[in-house]
Write a protein that binds this DNA or RNA. Structure first.
Length: 203
DNA sequence: GGCACGATAGGCT
DNA sequence: GCCTATCGTGCCC
């Protein structure tokens, strides 16, 4: 499967967020592969976006990777127990990113089941199967993405995004989740998801 | 099915 | 000392 190159990410973050839908997030770990189709994303538009960690040009060690070039991971801890995985977009100096909110498991189902529930895949209930990767914290658990992968180059061999099937998709735009503090920006429809997909976190 | 609530720790003021 | 780009559980329909 072809891997997305640097220039894919060096574009308008809203376009990247939409075009990431249907692509395949892959984590190669200890000779095994875990992969999942991206079904829900959110764009964070940087210095002018009150919901973005880089709003107003805020520049701290945590957000530093967003100020670098496109195609790197931005992983942060949230609520003390979960991670969120983002992909940095735009050229160096423009701190924008796309949050990956949900995905549909493809390869490594047994690993995902262990990582999430410490059970074999065929022992999972229906709701556990759906819960494997239908949220930003959940998919990080399932794919073993943590702060050790912050700043990882997605044009490498460990963590990357494959082109997938290139199937036609029906894309829904909606308000982003969990940003009530962000003033008028909380109502911007910068969340995108594949219509009718089972693994979307919020419909 | 939906809603309320608590867990938990790093990041920043 | 406060806040957070979340999730699981318990409870009540």
């Amino acid at each position: 499967m072809k891997t997305l190159g640097r220039e894919f990410y060096n574009r308008d973050s809203l376009i990247v967020a939409k075009e990431l839908l249907g692509k395949v997030l892959v984590h190669e770990i200890e000779g095994q592969r875990i992969s999942a189709k991206i079904v829900e994303t959110e764009a964070y538009m940087g210095v002018e976006d009150k919901a973005a960690h880089s709003y107003g040009g805020k520049r701290t060690p945590r957000v530093e990777v967003m100020y670098g070039g496109p195609g790197f991971s931005y992983v942060f801890m949230i609520y003390g127990m979960y991670y969120c995985f983002n992909i940095v977009t735009r050229e160096e100096g423009t701190p924008q990113a796309v949050l990956i909110r949900a995905a549909e498991p493809i390869e490594g189902l047994e690993l995902m089941a262990q990582n999430r529930f410490h059970k074999a895949y065929n022992q999972l209930s229906k709701s556990q199967i759906k819960g494997l990767t239908n949220g930003p914290g959940k998919l990080c658990r399932a794919l073993l993405i943590d702060k050790g992968l912050n700043g990882e180059d997605l044009c490498g061999l460990k963590l990357y995004v494959g082109a997938g099937e290139n199937e036609p998709l029906s894309i829904i735009s909606a308000k982003r989740i969990g940003i009530d503090y962000a003033g008028e920006a909380k109502d911007f429809c910068w969340r995108f998801y594949i219509e009718d997909n089972h693994y979307v976190s919020v419909k």
